[in-house]
Amino acid sequence: MSRSFWLGGCAASALIICGPAMLTAQEDPAERSLVINGEIEIVTEADAPAHLENLSTIRSGWTFRSPETQTMQMDDFDNPATLGVEAARAKFSSDLGNGESCASCHEAPEELAGVRAVYPKFDESAGEVQTIEMQINECITDRAGAEAWDYDKTDMINMSALMSFVSRGEAVNVAIDGPAAETWERGKEIYYTRYGLLELSCANCHEDNYDNMIRADHLSQGQVNGFPTYRLKNAKLNSVHGRFKGCVRDTMAETFSPGSPEFVALELYVASRGNGLSVEGPAVRN
């Protein structure tokens, strides 16, 4: 199968953005509320943060999904992302290669509850904005003296999922001012820049056309509070940057790499668009 063939199919699809989804009131997925395991209440709709000029309400991607996909996220047993979380839990207390483990410093993953909600954030010692993946790798290399994990491979995505898992229900609250301001501005610029042969920006789909259909798919606001996300499409956990890469690729552009400064900046900006929603990852999406 050639790559160009699939992109070609996408080129056609990107041009077809149609009207709002036809849904009956009785099963309108946007009207359901998300409570995980009957106990963790998730905010899936909130007033847009002050910096957002073009939206008044922000909505989690969960509100755009079908009832069946939504239901799969309402119980951890039904959510296959939990497999990755459990793998990370085992990794948390296992030797990183030099006798040290995550548990050498952090007694249990739950001790890190709430951390996910403020990432990406400016790191004083590193002098740059860091994603949670960068922070995990800093722990692995600087503190434990072990070899860094690949940014977008299973171990890292699983650990990132565990960090989301223990923070579920906390309000996303990333800082966009002070030392993070410069990176945030860069991310905002990328968000509104048209890329690729299709000349599409993030905003063209996720701000101008959310809630509309792109072919048969219900366009979301592109929020990242549910990441890492188990996608039915590829039946595995997907990272934020992996998803960004897929989006940019589908505009028929050469993409930035996971972990690149561009995607770090974009993640900070996109995360800030979700300030006020709950940390929801690892979520289930189509």
Binding site: C10, S13, A14, C205, M213, I214, R215, A216, D217, L219, K233, R243, K245, G246, C247, R249, D250, N286
Partner: peptide, 8 residues
């Protein structure tokens, strides 16, 4: 079965 959008 929906064919999907770009879907990333």
């Amino acid at each position: 079965v929906t064919i999907g959008g770009c879907g990333g």
